[in-house]
């Protein structure tokens, strides 16, 4: 099999999502409008509360991370979500592709878009709120972003698995899952503030560790040793498990006929 044919299969999804973004106002809003509104409003709030510069950085790291995850995970969820809406699900599964093409292709677009959102928000918050996003250095920043992207991939795959299980009823997951993470993983506050059981949940989610690790560069003592490592290890474990579940869900949808029901 020629590598160009293989590359075309991955690229198909990147190209599709790129076109869809240009075409739909909804997507442009998702990518540009909401992240900016969120950043500006929270940034101004930090001004009003007269937070120290480190605190401002603490909060903005959270906001920017969530925006990146939101945007990137949506691209992965679009692996099934767009076809769910268009009722065209079966055609892509009729083609000779495997889940790697589907998920990696969509994730690539998510990464590209995520980098775009990061650049936009980082530059903007540097100017407007004096946030120094390069304080950690390029290497740690890149590792942090990669961690976020992988996290987003995991959430996107969860959405896809839910769609394969529940069809249209799973749509809400696409937006609510990320918001739940916002609550649990310590976007605006350290997870020590969380009540026992919820904190335990936070410790199961890799995002908690990625945020910890990155905020250490802004003078916040990390709660956990080897945060970055833990984050990556957890993410890898989740991704492997989720990919297995995805394949299982897809087979199940082929058996129950859901794949057909979500088409036409």
């Amino acid at each position: 099999m020629s590598w160009r044919a293989e590359a075309a299969r991955y690229w198909a999804f990147v190209a599709k999502n790129a076109i869809m973004t240009r075409r739909s106002v909804f997507m442009l809003f998702e990518v540009l409008f909401w992240p900016c509104v969120w950043l500006v409003s929270v940034g101004l709030l930090t001004r009003f509360l007269e937070l120290r510069q480190e605190m401002v950085a603490y909060v903005l790291v959270g906001v920017i991370s969530m925006s990146i995850i939101q945007v990137c995970h949506l691209d992965v969820a679009f692996a099934l979500l767009l076809d769910l809406w268009a009722k065209s699900m079966k055609h892509q599964f009729l083609a000779p592709i495997h889940q790697g093409h589907l998920l990696l292709g969509h994730w690539l677009m998510g990464v590209l878009r995520g980098i775009g959102v990061f650049a936009l928000l980082a530059v903007f918050s540097a100017h407007a709120f004096g946030f120094d996003f390069l304080r950690a250095g390029v290497g740690p920043l890149a590792l942090f972003l990669l961690g976020l992207f992988l996290n987003a991939a995991a959430i996107g795959v969860v959405v896809c698995i839910l769609i394969l299980q529940y069809g249209h009823r799973a749509e809400v997951a696409a937006w609510s899952l990320v918001s739940l993470m916002m609550l649990v993983c310590g976007i605006y506050y350290p997870v020590t503030l969380l009540p026992g059981a919820v904190r335990w949940l936070a410790e199961l989610l890799p995002l908690t560790y990625f945020l910890e690790a990155f905020r250490a560069y802004y003078g916040f003592q990390p709660l956990y040793a080897h945060s970055l490592l833990k984050g990556y290890a957890l993410t890898a474990a989740y991704l492997v498990g989720l990919l297995v579940l995805f394949q299982w869900g897809l087979n199940r949808a082929r058996r129950t006929g859901l794949l057909l029901k979500l088409s036409e």
Binding site: W11, R23, A86, Q92
Partner: peptide, 17 residues
């Protein structure tokens, strides 16, 4: 098929697949 894509884009998308 995806509503926002043109006839041509749809064929290119599935062609790549």
């Amino acid at each position: 098929f995806l509503w926002a894509l043109t006839a041509e884009e749809i064929l290119h998308f599935y062609g790549r697949l």
